[in-house]
Simulated scan of single mutants.
Amino acid sequence: MKISKITKSLVAGCALAGASLSANAGVVATSYLDVQSFGIVAYFDAALTDKVSNEQLAQFITVSSGQRSSSTSTGFNGAGLPNTPAFAPTNDGIADGVFNCVGPSCGLTGVSNNSLVGNYNTALNLHNDSRDNGYSYGMADAIVSGSALNFDPTNPASGMTYAAASVGSNNSVASGNSDIADSLTTVLNFELNGPTEIYLAFTLAYKLIVDTVKSADIESDPTQVANATASASFQVGIGSDDSTGNGGALGVQRQLDDGTVVYLNEDDLEIVNLVSEADDFTGSNTGVTEDGGVARSEFFRLRAGDFQVSIGQKSTARVSLVSAPGTLAIAGLGLLGLAAVRRRKS
């Protein structure tokens, strides 16, 4: 018995749906934040003309306590590394996060523990290779070292967070997370008959890749649904610490409507975003790459006493590639058509 035209079309639809259930290229998200130096700059006056030397800063500011950590996690189709922290033995020591890669393409990436420190071009090339070759992995790495409040320009504080995720086959998800955290208690001391206040800002030099991409075949295939997000951030916070009854006075820089700069007293922790970037497949979808980024916070007025300083750096990446709902419906109709053929034959 001949198969009807309707049944033929259903079978064809089923074959089309089956053909679209795999992709030959990739969906990728990368967040690479490599901080070459983090430190402070300070002046004795609000006009910012009388600079405090590194030697004077070392005399004025000491870190009395603190904790430093880095952590990583990964995932690929339900397998991977759970959140795993690593702690530094001292508040200015090395916290080397666990490098991890999970997924069938890990052996192709060439990435190993700390191999991407300072390797901006390598990270960018891997991002593009993953898209073009359909790599599949979830990957993360992190490391931080040096004094968070650095007074020696020859030994700057530095840290890297790297999170990347890539999928090259349908019905797959991948993720990576990387974090660095410092929590410090600092003491600001002035010599007798010395200055009464200093004006301090945090500075940052870094390299950055925050980008999501998908290959052209996935972009043009309506039967594929691709999602990806990537983000990177670096935050620093400062506030008065009155836990021992010796909280220092913190003044926060504000500009009035007439352009006048004033310093308002503030007791709460002031958070400043020195880096805050994100990308996904909505909007302009341009991503961000910076091979020589620099940033500086506003200035804070500090008077003698105790302060708390928090520093956080983070990278995240997520990707997924699944069949569109309509594709699954076509496949279902195709199966119904095959069943109808069998009934007609019987």
Rank of each mutant, 00 (worst) to 15 (best):
L250H: 03
R68E: 03
I198G: 05
K8A: 12
Q253I: 07
G75I: 00
Q67Y: 09
V341M: 05
Q36D: 15
K5F: 11
D268S: 14
L250A: 02
N100W: 06
G78M: 01
T196E: 05
F281A: 09
N273F: 08
G176N: 06
K8Q: 13
L256K: 14
L208A: 06
Y199D: 04
N150M: 06
N121P: 00
R254M: 08
D268M: 11
I6N: 11
I143D: 01
N171D: 10
D45E: 05
V309T: 02
D152T: 10
N83P: 06
A15D: 10
N189P: 00
E290S: 13
P325W: 08
L269M: 14
P195S: 04
N189K: 13
G248K: 09
E290Y: 05
D141C: 04
S71C: 10
T154R: 10
F281R: 13
R343C: 06
T72V: 09
I143A: 00
T223P: 04
Q235C: 05
P82W: 10
A181D: 13
A17F: 01
Y135K: 06
S112R: 10
D258W: 12
T161D: 02
F38S: 02
A17Y: 04
A226Q: 08
G103M: 06
T203V: 13
A181P: 03
A165H: 11
D268T: 15
P222S: 07
T185G: 12
R68P: 03
N265W: 09
L333N: 10
T203M: 05
N193G: 01
D182W: 01
V252H: 04
P85C: 09
A216E: 13
D50C: 06
F38Y: 04
N155F: 10
D279M: 02
I180M: 02
I271Y: 06
V341G: 00
G326M: 11
F87L: 14
F299Y: 14
V98F: 09
T30W: 03
L274I: 01
R318I: 10
M160H: 09
V167I: 00
